[in-house]
Every structure is written in structure tokens, then in C-alpha cells.
């Protein structure tokens, strides 16, 4: 089992993802954005950061990096792909996930530990019981998820909403999303469940030395799942 972590110009969380995977005992290697071969990788992570300076729109340019054509092929073949923060934005721009991420309501860059409620979903990357509350840092300026009403119905009906911003007790209130995200959506997956995008940073909470371990299952679940196949 080997994670591949894509480095785009302007990515800045790739080392954290590599560290998290290796800390948990998994193999992980970098993939350069100019590469066009994903052979040898079992799962791909698009890390956080500011790819291409967030110019035009977050993820709009990264989406056309040479490696992305391969990532799309990999995902369409059922390969597991997780996009964290800027990685989530890139996945929406690449149309691997529906919707878009707008500027936070209030125009504030948010950076804090955030309670999230795990929803019943098709996501292959997470098997925590629905209703579990995890604390994971958010660190972004454009995390205000939006999609049209029809897409939202589809996300709900297919179990594609994976994480919602919530209060510490797990209740989801209208003001729970610190960025104004539609329906408090913090993370979604595709219908098949292999492509997962989320604004929070699970890679920052796998080592007890760094304020928690709530991010562990975001890496271990997919490893176990692939081992069973």
C-alpha cells in the first residue's frame, strides 16, 4: 500500500501528508505535478496549499497540470483519491467532485480546530460511525461550499455528504459552518465513494504530539479497505 502525494507549485501541506502516512506505518512518496505516471501508487492525495498562487480561482490552473489527466483516469478506474483543502478545490475544478468553493462568508481566513460530524456516506476513505464528532483543523480562505439545489439533493440521496461542520456536541446548526458552507458541508465524495474532498486537514491530527489523533482513520481506513480487496 503506497500513498502518492502530488506537489503542485504552491502546495504547502505535502510534507505533512507524507509525514502522517509514514507515521502511521504506510509507504508514501511525492508525485511531481509534471509527472504522467501513477504506476506503483495505490491511493493519491492532493494536498493543501495555494497551487499556482490561487490565481484565477483556487485550483483552476492546477487542474490542468499534466499529472491531473492521470489522476482523473486513476479516479475513473476506481482508484482512491483524497483532496484536502486546496486539493478539494482542485477536485471540484477538475469535475471529479460537484460544486465549488467560494470565499468564506465574512471574508476571514479561518484557522482553528473545528468539530465535524461524520455522516452516513458512501466514502471509502472513512468508516467512522455516523454521528461521530471529530476535531480537525481548518485553515482556509475559500471553503464556502456551494452547489445547485439539484446537486444538493443528489449528494444527500446518494450518501455523498461525508462531513458537516458542527457544534462540539455534534449538533449541526445554521451557524455551525465557520465559512458559510451550504448545508454545513465540510467534505463530500463522488457517487462511488473513491474520490473524497474535504476542507479540514486530517494530516495535522495523527500524531498525539500535535494536538490529537482524530485524523488517523482518514488514512488507515483506505489502507484496510485496499488490503481486503
Amino acid at each position: 500500500m503506497r500513498f502518492g502525494v502530488v506537489i503542485f507549485p504552491g502546495s504547502n501541506c505535502e510534507q505533512d501528508v507524507i509525514h502522517a502516512a509514514r507515521y502511521l506505518g504506510h509507504e508514501a512518496e511525492y508525485i511531481w505535478h509534471g509527472d504522467t505516471d501513477l504506476a506503483g501508487f495505490d491511493a493519491v492525495v492532493l494536498p493543501g496549499g495555494f497551487s499556482y498562487g490561487d490565481y484565477i480561482r483556487c485550483g483552476a490552473v492546477a487542474r490542468f497540470s499534466p499529472v491531473m489527466a492521470e489522476v482523473v483516469r486513476f479516479a475513473e478506474a476506481g482508484g482512491p483519491v483524497m483532496g484536502i483543502c486546496n486539493g478539494f478545490q482542485i477536485l471540484t475544478e477538475a469535475h471529479l467532485l460537484p460544486g465549488a468553493l467560494l470565499r468564506n462568508v465574512g471574508l476571514k481566513f479561518i484557522c482553528h480546530s473545528q468539530p465535524l460530524r461524520v455522516e452516513q456516506s458512501a466514502c471509502q476513505w472513512l468508516d467512522l460511525p455516523a454521528g461521530t464528532v471529530v476535531d480537525i483543523p481548518v485553515n482556509h480562505n475559500e471553503g464556502n461550499y456551494i452547489c445547485d439545489a439539484e446537486t444538493l439533493q443528489r449528494l444527500k440521496g446518494n450518501g455523498q455528504i461525508v462531513l458537516r461542520y458542527c457544534e462540539p456536541d455534534g449538533s449541526v446548526l445554521s451557524g455551525s459552518a465557520p465559512n458559510g458552507a451550504l448545508d454545513n458541508i465540510a467534505g463530500i465524495c463522488n457517487e462511488r465513494g473513491n474520490v473524497f474532498g474535504l476542507m479540514p486537514h486530517p494530516e495535522r491530527v495523527v500524531d498525539p504530539l500535535c494536538s490529537g489523533t482524530d485524523g488517523v482513520s482518514f488514512f488507515n481506513t483506505i489502507v484496510q479497505r485496499l488490503a481486503e480487496v
Binding site: 484565477i56 480561482r57 483552476a60 490542468f64 475544478e93 460537484p98 460544486g99 465549488a100 467560494l102 456551494i146
Partner: peptide
């Protein structure tokens, strides 16, 4: 393709 995102 690039300059605008037709979703939004």
C-alpha cells in the same frame, strides 16, 4: 475552460 467556472 479556464477563465470562468460555469458552475458558479
Amino acid at each position: 475552460k479556464l477563465l470562468a467556472n460555469p458552475v458558479i
